[in-house]
């Protein structure tokens, strides 16, 4: 039994301390990847990959394996599959997503039912208070990989998500880096699975970015601000959910949505000079 670090209420228990670390980590790195997806006009890809990951959860339960690793394999394969279908223009981007989206969730339900497991709530909606030290370690490890990956590739990822046609003409490795971005996206989805759930982690990839882009004037600042907003939303949502005994993941996403509403109002009140040029 690991003793809790002495912290004030509500972070005075080991469970809340683990939840704090996991929520803030997912809150910070989900929008970091999300900024590149939004710029690439693939805001909903996280949702689609989440559904594919659910098929992996089902298979993990059926085979009696760790659902996290099977989910990761499915999510990476699904994210790369969507990217390849989109890039080869074999199928429209949103149709490619829909295909994976529905097939994934259906497969997950079939696998889970076959395994005789009907309590799937933790995978769909998360439960940060149920984090074990090993699942927390996995979240922090994946978060670290994503942070290092995005930091090292930030300039070239920015170039390809901003103007893919030009990047191709320039000879940049667009396909390889798009697959790398898809794999990082899948990693974030699975890392966030037991924290905020497969259905809500995609919201944390997009909502803080939507808020940050209203308040920033450069891509770099948008990414940094989105990470800050995501972490802050996770922190506030965790406290509110815990004290009011509500769903913590739901509260986190609602806080992120509320931040967007506030950001929209702030944006409207910006000086007219800026607005008129947009």
């Amino acid at each position: 039994m690991i003793a809790a670090i002495p912290l004030p209420y509500p972070f005075d228990t080991v469970e809340m301390q683990r939840a704090l670390l996991a929520c803030v980590a997912v809150g910070a790195f989900a929008p970091t990847i999300g900024a590149f997806l939004v710029q690439k006009r693939l805001s909903l890809v996280g949702d689609g990959v989440g559904h594919v990951a659910f098929a992996g959860v089902g298979l993990g339960l059926l085979l009696g394996m760790s659902a996290v690793w099977t989910a990761l394999v499915f999510a990476v394969a699904g994210a790369i599959g969507v990217e390849l279908l989109r890039a080869k223009k074999k199928i429209a981007g949103d149709l490619a997503l829909a295909l994976f989206f529905y097939a994934g969730i259906a497969l997950g339900v079939v696998f889970a039912a076959k395994a005789g497991v009907d309590d799937l709530e933790i995978y769909l909606f998360g439960d940060p208070l149920a984090m074990t030290s090993s699942s927390l370690a996995a979240v922090v490890l994946i978060g670290g990989i994503v942070a290092v990956g995005v930091w090292s590739l930030r300039r070239v990822l920015f170039a390809i998500v901003t103007d893919e046609a030009w990047a191709r003409a320039e000879g940049l490795p667009v396909d390889t880096l798009s697959v790398a971005l898809a794999a990082l996206t899948a990693a974030v989805i699975v890392a966030g699975m037991k924290v905020v759930g497969l259905l809500l982690v995609a919201a944390l990839m997009v909502l803080p970015v939507a808020s940050a882009q209203l308040l920033s004037r450069s891509f770099r600042r948008t990414v940094l601000l989105a990470a800050g907003i995501g972490a802050a939303s996770a922190f506030v949502g965790l406290i509110v959910g815990h004290i009011a005994e509500l769903s913590i993941s739901g509260c986190i996403v609602l806080v992120a949505a509320a931040v967007f509403t506030v950001a929209s109002v702030v944006r409207r009140s910006l000086p007219a000079a800026v607005e008129s040029q947009v």
Partner: peptide, 15 residues
């Protein structure tokens, strides 16, 4: 979709 400055766009040309 996300704001990008002239400098950020031009820097891509150096990659």
């Amino acid at each position: 979709e996300v704001p990008a400055t002239v400098r950020e766009i031009v820097a891509s040309g150096r990659l």
